[in-house]
Write a protein that binds this DNA or RNA. Structure first.
Lengths: 149, 149
DNA sequence: AGCCATTGACTACAATCGTCATCGATGCGA
DNA sequence: TCGCATCGATGACGATTGTAGTCAATGGCT
C-alpha cells in the first residue's frame, strides 16, 4: 500500500505555519539539517546514498537518519527532488548565499541590535582574522566608502 | 511541603551533561531565555517581578512563563540568585561579552568555516552598515594592520 | 494574631529535534 | 524470471523548548 507518493512539498504539515504572502519562507533549518544542506550545496543533485557516503567520515549517522533529515528538508521546502529510477535526487532549492544572508541578519539583529561593527570587533579580538581577511575587508571597505560618496 | 530549597545550581539535572574539565560551559541558551538574559544584562540584579514588568510590552508572557525561564537559566548555571526576603534576586553569571564572543565564533564557524570576511560582505550587501559602522570598521582595521606589523 | 497577595517549586503538554528501526515496494543482476 | 539489496514512507522515542496552571510556603499589613 501507500505506494511512493510524489514527495509532498511543504504541503499540509502538522499545523501549516501560515506565512504572509510575499514573505520568504523562513523555514527553520536545524543544525543536523544544515549538515545535509552543506553537502548538497557542494555537489549538486545527489541521491540519499551519496549524501550518506559524503558524511560517512564526518558524521556517524545511520542511513535512516540521513534519509529522515532529507525528508524533513523536502517537507520544509528547502530541498527539491527529481526522480531517477526508483530513487530521488535531491538538490537545494534555497541558494546558499540566501541562507547565509538571512542567517547573518537575524544573528546580527538578535545579538548586536543590527550593528555590524561590534561583531567584527569580537572577531578581531579573538584573532580570528587572518591577514587575508584583513586585506579583504580593507578592500571591501574601500569600495563601500566610494559607494557612499 | 518541599520548602523552598536553595536553588539547586546546575547540580543534578536530568542527565548531567558531562563536560570536559577545562571546557567552557557551553550551556545552550535558547531564544526565549536570551530575552530574559537581555533584561538581566541591562539592569543588574532583578526580582522575577521586575523582569516581568520589563518585558510586559515586548513579550506577552504570563508570570509563570517568566519564572520558568528564570529557573531554567539558574539550572543551567548562567544566572545566579541572591535571597531578598522571601524572593530571589537574579543576576547574570555569564558576562554578555563572553556570550557574544562564543556565539559569534560558533556562528562564523558553522556558516563560514571560520572566515570573517564573507560575513562582513553579506552585511555590506544588505546595506546593513551605517556610515558610522564603516568608519568604525575602518579604524578597527587600521589598528589591526598595525598590530600585525 | 491572622489574612492575603506574592513567590518559587512542581507538573504539564504540545511541538520540534536528533536518532533510528521496520516495512512494503521495486528494479537489477544472476 | 526471481531473489535480494536498496529505496522511500512511516512510526517511534527520549530530550528540549515554549508556554502555562496549580499549590504550598511565607512575609508584610491590618
Amino acid at each position: 500500500m501507500a505506494k511512493e507518493k510524489p514527495p509532498k512539498e511543504a504541503s499540509k504539515r502538522r499545523k501549516e505555519k501560515q506565512r504572509a504572502p510575499g514573505e520568504q519562507s523562513p523555514e527553520r533549518i536545524t543544525p543536523a539539517e544544515q549538515t545535509i544542506m552543506d553537502v548538497l550545496w557542494q555537489r549538486a543533485p545527489l541521491a540519499a546514498a551519496d549524501v550518506m557516503t559524503a558524511l560517512r567520515t564526518e558524521k556517524d549517522w545511520t542511513p535512516t537518519t540521513v534519509k529522515t533529515l532529507l525528508s524533513r528538508l523536502v517537507e520544509k521546502g528547502v530541498v527539491e527532488t527529481a526522480r531517477d529510477g526508483r530513487r530521488f535526487l535531491y538538490s537545494p532549492r534555497l541558494a546558499r548565499a540566501h541562507y547565509e544572508r538571512s542567517m547573518t541578519h537575524s544573528f546580527v539583529d538578535r545579538l548586536f541590535g543590527g550593528r555590524a561593527a561590534p561583531l567584527v570587533a569580537h572577531l578581531a579580538d579573538a584573532e580570528r582574522l587572518t591577514d587575508e581577511d584583513i586585506a579583504e575587508l580593507d578592500a571591501l571597505l574601500e569600495e563601500l566608502k566610494n559607494d557612499r560618496r
